[in-house]
Computed example of a mutant assay.
Amino acid sequence: MSKHSMAAQVAVITGAARGVGAQLARVLAARGAKVALVGLERDELAAVAESIGPDAGWWEANVTDREALRTVADEIVERYGKIDVVVANAGIATGAPFVDSDPDVWTRVIDVNLVGSANTAWAFLPALTASRGYFLQIASLAALTPAPLMTAYCASKAGVEALAHSLRPELALKGVKVGVGYLSWTDTDMVRGADQDDVMRDMRAGLPWPLNKTYPLAPAVERIADGIGRRSTHVYAQAWLRAMQPQRHLTPLIVGAVGPIKLRAMGSRLAEFAEKPRGLVGRGGAADDAARRSRVE
């Protein structure tokens, strides 16, 4: 048996309709896991589950709905008998200068990414405690490196990193291990959606290598799956991210010095954000908008 085999394990993945979540479900299933997909987009969830096989199940739920997640957790345990791994992956993003951000959109990013991760933990930790399982919180390069025009996303990902690190000693007493997963720009709908904004795309292109590169999805997810198999404390989807950890205390100083120069060079282009407020990026953002509208109606 491979040291990274997931045979006989049950893995729950939020944000599993597309991108990292969908690909991770496929990889873990290929390694023997029974996977439970949680997300907003019924058709996409069903298609991913069908592509995996009969042991894959899907549940429609918004991570901002705590009671819905608790119901989903109960139903997954009822179907599979246990839960061994939970990956808190659901996330959305927006980009704009803070003063030109739509406060409702900005706050929604915090609600989904940070509060949604806490809701995921509240819902699934009883099952993970019973199985002495593993909780992986997906963070980001944005947790290691602050960035202008990305205040909501950076704040949310720094928050989920801190949440996971704070949970780790508490849950160790219950036999549950906690990890944090870090990804740089990876080829997903979210990143492609962000690149549709000319200003955001050009801002990212001006970053130094390797921060300005978009990385392929498949190898990034294979590394995440390896980390899950090891129940690692830190999981790096791109190997070079590991080297960011020892010097992360320097990045705010560097960004603080270089950021104003980059922004000044953009000149009047920054005014576009005030003239045309930005919403959530990508198809995942559109799905969250649709879900919120349906709840209001």
Rank of each mutant, 00 (worst) to 15 (best):
S2Y: 11
K3L: 14
S5R: 14
A7I: 10
A8Y: 14
A8E: 15
I13D: 13
G15K: 01
L24P: 00
A25Q: 09
A25Y: 10
R26T: 06
G32Y: 02
A33G: 05
A33E: 05
K34Y: 09
K34I: 10
A36G: 12
D43Q: 15
E44Q: 12
A46M: 11
V48R: 03
G53Q: 05
D55T: 09
W58E: 08
E60H: 10
A61R: 01
A61K: 00
E67F: 11
L69T: 00
R70K: 15
V72F: 02
A73M: 01
E75F: 03
E75C: 03
E78A: 14
K82Q: 11
K82N: 09
I83N: 02
D84R: 00
V85N: 02
A90P: 07
A90R: 07
I92S: 04
T94H: 04
G95A: 09
A96L: 12
A96E: 05
P97Q: 06
P97R: 04
S101R: 08
D104W: 08
V109L: 02
N113L: 04
A118I: 12
T120G: 09
W122N: 13
W122G: 11
A123C: 07
F124H: 06
P126F: 04
T129M: 14
R132M: 13
I138L: 12
I138S: 07
A139D: 09
L141A: 12
A147N: 11
A147F: 12
C154V: 05
C154D: 03
K157A: 01
E161K: 08
L163V: 12
A164P: 00
A164T: 07
A164K: 01
L167N: 00
R168Y: 05
E170W: 07
A172F: 04
L173G: 13
V176R: 00
V178D: 06
V178Y: 06
G179V: 05
S184V: 13
D187K: 03
D187S: 05
D189P: 07
M190W: 09
D195V: 11
D198P: 08
D202N: 14
M203Y: 14
M203G: 11
G206F: 06
N212G: 06
K213F: 15
P219C: 03
R223I: 03
R223Y: 03
I228K: 08
R230H: 13
R231V: 13
S232N: 13
S232I: 09
S232Q: 11
T233P: 05
V235K: 03
Y236C: 07
Q238V: 03
L241D: 07
Q247I: 15
Q247R: 15
Q247C: 15
L250T: 14
P252E: 12
P252V: 12
A265P: 11
L270I: 10
E272N: 14
R278I: 09
R283N: 10
R283Y: 05
G284N: 02
A286V: 11
D288P: 08
R292I: 04
